[in-house]
Simulated assay, not measured.
Amino acid sequence: MKTALVLGGTRFFGVNLVESLLQKGVKVTIGTRGETTDSFGDRVDRIKLDRFDKASLMEETVGRAWDVVFDQICYASHDASIAIDAFKDKVQHYVFTSTLSVYGFLDHTCQEEDFDPYTYPISYVKSENVSYQEGKRQAEAVFFQHAPFSVTAVRIPIVLGEQDYTKRLLFHVDKVLHEEGIGLPNQEAEMNFISQQEAGAFLAWCGENRLNGPVNACANDSISLQDLIRLIEGVVDKKAKIMTTITDENASPYGVEQSWTMSNERATAWGYTFTNLQSWLPSLIQYLAKEKENIKLT
């Protein structure tokens, strides 16, 4: 992989993806609407385009070609379809960021074969007309059934990191710091996570190796919500107030009613070594707690 186009490389783990590619010596182009600044300077090329507009996507990439396209912002079959039309003669491999959500809630740890995009019925829709889960399922189906280039669909769980704009982990840290209630329907439910650094590095690795097919990516080990809260309690030295009555104000963004975990055995068998969740999660919680305390003091 000598050249790559990144769609969605200016925030959160898209930034980590670009950094990982640059570290590998890849010549990176970022496709962006130009509304978000980045810190890459002259280390990257830029194309101003609208990822969700077919005419823009095709016109702004005329005469260009890349070894790999990394697509962070594909949410439905419509998005996948226009990408195929735009890049069918311009790319050798496509890495699409998918999600654990394609599986739904199962009674076991999710394996790649639990959702089959090669046979899933396609309905051409835009993201605003379907759920997040169905949109990602449809996008995978279009890519694997119709793309003329090879495709990796990287299915990731919730991504954690210092630049997480969703602030879902920060929600829990903030509630414990301020001794406010956290609504959790099932404290014993377990979840997987991945760090923003590892998400970016793994995506780059998939492009480098041109892996074909869907693959799960998460840190080794899962954690129960109860143990996650205990980690936060240990860092901030306060006791959490867990509520079984769920309201709009106290509802945890991680408030699943049953365990929701995935296996990373396929990626491991392909040769990738994932981090252990406990090797970085406590330090991330410490960072968020310090940031929150600093904000409160100022």
Results as ranks from 00 to 15, higher is better:
S20G: 15
G63P: 11
S123F: 09
S39T: 02
M243D: 03
V18G: 12
N129P: 00
P185H: 07
L288H: 14
L203H: 11
R168H: 08
T109C: 06
L17R: 11
F105T: 06
T10S: 13
K292N: 06
L281E: 01
G34E: 01
A147S: 04
V151L: 10
G213M: 14
Y94M: 14
Y103W: 01
G181D: 13
N209S: 01
W260H: 04
L284I: 08
G14W: 06
R46D: 08
K136C: 01
F202R: 09
I47A: 07
D89N: 11
G34L: 07
N212A: 15
V68N: 12
V68T: 15
Q133V: 15
Q133H: 13
Y287C: 01
D116V: 09
D114K: 13
V125A: 03
V69N: 05
E291V: 03
M191R: 15
F87W: 14
S150L: 07
W66Q: 08
G9A: 12
F143Y: 03
I246L: 01
F149A: 06
H146M: 02
Q258F: 10
P148D: 07
Q187R: 07
L288F: 12
V15E: 12
A4S: 12
Y118S: 09
T275G: 06
V215L: 10
Q133G: 09
G8A: 14
Y118I: 05
S20H: 14
F105Q: 04
A65W: 03
V256G: 01
T261H: 00
V28I: 15
L177A: 09
A289G: 13
K2G: 15
G255L: 02
V176R: 06
V154H: 11
I158F: 11
H178E: 10
A153T: 04
I30V: 10
I30M: 10
V69W: 05
I194Q: 00
E180P: 06
P185S: 09
L5T: 02
F96L: 13
C74V: 05
V44T: 08
Q196I: 08
D50R: 06
L5C: 08
K175P: 05
K54S: 10
Y287H: 00
T275L: 03
K24N: 14
L277C: 09
K136W: 03
K88T: 12
Y103I: 01
